[in-house]
Design a protein around this nucleic acid. Structure first.
Lengths: 335, 335
DNA sequence: TTGATAAATGTAAACGTTTACATTACAAAT
DNA sequence: ATTTGTAATGTAAACGTTTACATTTATCAA
């Protein structure tokens, strides 16, 4: 690869001048700008971003870190797309780390990204007391948390009103006459699920239905967990009339378990899933789901990160986006 | 962040010695190793990967580029997971670029990744004559192509036998008595679709069914295209009895169009999708699909890249993985 | 003509590493 | 006592930029 020096020699100026040209420094004459640009084109010179990043701490070389819990979860894919969309428009490159709910892996990515001198980080913390992320914030590295916040420290957050989202879903079921509603949750270490649980309880309260702990199941957030938990639910002596499933992978697993038992949805059991997906409408039957605006969350987070990089001292923000209950065919009224 | 110098001062050795310690250079005494390691721990020193990368060209700082056409396509998500899995085990970091079938964006990522001094690149070329990628290969930057190869130049490739995959699907439909089989394809600039088309034709040939160009539709590879093309297909005066859909997003779009018209699958129309997905089994009805081993492709590509980095001169490889036809409920026999 | 001021360009240090080469210390061989 | 060899460590240049500061050149007022 050609470098500044080569360009400088080619156009018979100093490397400083070339550097100024590529950085649009106004104090270089029109004439030399053209000359240098010609050389740059001739030699197909591209500035080395590694050297740029090493030299200048002030985010000349735009690089952004994005750490997500599970790239198999289409919700996070939407988030990635949102971040990437904004980044691309603003000439940032994005480095993605996927930690699959493995705390060690999350830590590793935190370290690597730091060592890569990223300008800022967007991350979905594995839990609310994530020390690794706290440290970054304390070091004044720009951080925006997504989907989940941090409890011990003030930080920018973009999330969804999980409590209200869950509340609305359960409220809908209760309105349709359901009383025994099972909840397939993710691990309660994850703040999101704590909030959804809280929405679940509040809705029951509102309708004067007693909370029954034996209807709540929390394991991992993957397909298999959904499948296994649903199997257990279906075996219960007094079978629930409805299931509220905590994320899209759990829902898929649950659906498979239900279909495997040849149980009819919604006649024999109703189901609402958290997370709406492109295929929800093509499922059997079309799934009633709580829609999270993943793309918007990603975009908003990137935007906020951008602002924080530009202005590190500014007050921390807490953005809460709305969910939407998408009514389809997987729920029905019972008496 | 603390640096080599700080550690050197703390442990009263030269920075060269510290560098040797972090690189496990055998020619440093047991004693000093311990002393330096203590300082490293005390100061929480992490080597700056940017500086490492700048200084040493020989891939000390393991960084890998991965460029994919569409992160919304779960097939590519599987590929990403495969690559990441291998990378993580071998202490590589992965930088991901998603170009959304936009050639400009692909070019930009190619440039950026190069400027980032990546050690190697895994990429799904936008078409077979991709000059940008050709250039990288010519510059001896380790490159592995995935899903699609390059026609003009010898390069490592990991792909799937698209022709055979499509052949088997169409053969299955023909065996069940279908004669008018529509093909919802992606753009024929993309080699994958050329190959699938070829399999489609060969199957027709085998069964002595005349090829009817008006049954082939090629547009983009997204949800919307699938929906719109399916609408057109359903409006055809003589409606096809089966649809072969070129990728999972197209399939989803097509399904929605079919459901919107209240047309029964498979009684009124059969459908097979290329790409099997976790939710295929929960679709209405469970979808017969051609399964591509995305995760394995990703892992294999990463592995090959690793080998090429270690041994740049080695002969280029061409790995072709098998597809599998997952028989479910979206196809039926007709007379 | 001179001196002052501004504009354009150049010089060289710095960013945090790696590494070729030089130096030191010490044991073993002469 | 001198040489030789080896192991451990240090010195300084290099990677490709940016940028504070210095220098040159041009412009213009006096």
């Amino acid at each position: 690869m050609s470098n500044l020096k080569a360009v400088a020699e080619h156009s018979k100026v100093s490397i400083a001048t070339v550097s100024r040209v590529i950085n649009n420094d106004p104090k270089v004459s029109r004439e030399t700008v053209l000359k240098v640009q010609a050389s740059i084109a001739a030699l197909e010179f591209k500035p080395n971003r590694v050297a740029q990043r090493l030299r200048s701490s002030n985010s000349k070389t735009k690089l952004l870190g994005l750490i997500i819990p599970d790239i198999q979860n289409p919700f996070f894919v939407d988030v990635v797309r949102g971040v990437e969309d904004y980044a691309y428009q603003n000439n940032f490159a994005v480095m993605i780390g996927n930690f699959g709910q493995d705390e060690k892996k999350e830590k590793l990515y935190l370290d690597i990204f730091q060592s890569e001198n990223i300008d800022g980080l967007i991350v979905a913390p594995i839990h609310g007391k994530d020390k690794g992320i706290e440290n970054l914030v304390k070091k004044n590295i720009p951080v925006v948390c997504i989907d989940r916040g941090l409890t011990e420290i003030d930080v920018d957050v973009v999330k969804v009103d999980n409590e209200l989202g869950a509340f609305n879903a359960i409220d809908h079921l209760l309105n349709m006459g359901h009383k025994r509603i099972a909840f397939i949750s993710g691990n309660f270490k994850i703040p999101t699920y704590i909030e959804r649980m809280s929405g679940y309880k509040k809705a029951l309260e509102k309708h004067g239905v007693a909370f029954d702990e034996s209807l709540v199941f929390a394991r991992n957030t993957d397909y298999k967990s959904g499948f296994e938990i649903a199997q257990k639910i279906l075996e219960l002596e007094e079978r629930p009339t409805a299931i509220f499933s905590g994320n899209n992978l759990l829902t898929l697993g649950a659906l498979e378990a239900i279909h495997a038992e040849n149980i009819k949805i919604p006649e024999e059991i109703s189901i609402i899933g958290f997370d709406d997906m492109p295929w929800s409408i093509s499922l059997n039957p079309p799934l009633t789901a709580v829609r999270q605006p993943g793309f918007d969350m990603g975009r908003k987070a990137a935007e906020m990160l951008y602002e924080r990089i530009a202005n590190p001292g500014k007050k921390k923000e807490n953005v809460i986006l709305k969910t939407e209950l998408m009514l389809r065919k997987s729920t029905t009224r019972i008496e």
